[in-house]
Simulated assay, not measured.
Amino acid sequence: MEKLPFGKLRNELLREVIFPNLGIEDGKVIYGPKEGFDSAVLEYDDEHYLIVATDPTLGVPAETFGFFTYHFASSDVAVFGARPRWLVIDFVLPPGTSREFLERTMEDLNGECRRFGSAIIGGHTGVYPSVRELVATTTAMGLVKREGLKLPLAKPGDRIIVTGKVALEFVVSASYFRARELKGFLTPGKLSRLRSLYRLETVLPDALIARPFVRGMHDATEGGLTALHEIADNSGLGFVVYSDRLRLNPLVEKVLDFYGLEPWSVSSTGTLIAITPPENSNQLIAELHKNGITAFELGEFTREKERLLVENGKVKPFPEFEGDPYVTLYGK
């Protein structure tokens, strides 16, 4: 009997097992489940589409639980061009969960909802003996004008603009879950600084700023920048990435070096990949910088189908998603 691997299912399993079993066809579904598409697009009225995304929250530190319960799914709505408006949230909690934890989580959730104009409209909350860790699932929804819909698709010559949070998710999680092995490498102050950066693990503000300038967007979550392959596959294109253009947070780079990891396939939730027509590239970067968000042009999509990484003057294939270091590190 074949056992499923840890982490997000690979695309071949989605194609073989999930996508053939999706119920009836419905004319209101403009875009349903698809590799590289993290939201569904439904017909809403003559002017709008309804964007719907769902995501679990688990394996995160308790103090970050409310933040990620909001932002994981809401980020997926934002990259399709919509502001998350409605949320449905299920909390499935282990025995021993305290009232104080639930109060703090709801206060954090309420704060993020008020910051971005969202309403929690339903869900389920319970404590169950079969549950071993904190789990939430969030379904986020928002409306977008039809002409404002952003799909993760590119055209030849489109620039790859990336916000400066590559590998941040992996490194911040290491500061919580692997602190003991990092204590001899990082000062307590630097560990504390890394832990505070979890609030950058969202593309929601980035995507809302980027909307007028981009063709499409993607959040580089599990597998990090290897999400470029999905964009290229769906667009029938290739791409070229220049390693010397990558800008890493110095603390992030330091921890990656400690673990001997390259940044390309490391979990990078909160890193916006913006697919941008060349004439909009500089303006987008300037607008993000004006709002305190680091961004840079990493490469471009090409008519040729090769996916290339130019590194130290050499050209080689861009890494594929073969396994996320996040899963192997925290699955131990």
Rank of each mutant, 00 (worst) to 15 (best):
A140R: 04
E320S: 07
G36V: 02
G238L: 12
D219A: 07
F213K: 08
V214E: 05
A136W: 01
H218Q: 14
F37R: 05
S175I: 03
D76T: 03
F37K: 06
D26T: 05
L87M: 14
P84G: 06
A140E: 07
S39W: 08
A136R: 05
A78C: 02
A167G: 03
V29Y: 04
E320N: 03
G238Q: 14
S39M: 08
R307E: 14
T271M: 12
K3T: 06
S39D: 03
R303T: 09
E320Q: 10
S268E: 01
E320Y: 09
V240F: 07
R247T: 12
P205A: 06
R159Y: 12
S130M: 06
P325Q: 00
R215C: 10
L191N: 09
S75Y: 09
R199A: 06
C113M: 15
V166Q: 04
F65P: 01
A295T: 08
E320D: 06
L134R: 09
G36N: 04
T271F: 08
E306T: 15
R146P: 11
V135P: 00
K305F: 10
S192W: 07
N110R: 12
A82Y: 02
K290I: 01
A119F: 04
L13T: 02
R115E: 01
R307Y: 08
D38N: 09
T125M: 15
L228G: 07
L309F: 14
L272H: 09
A78M: 01
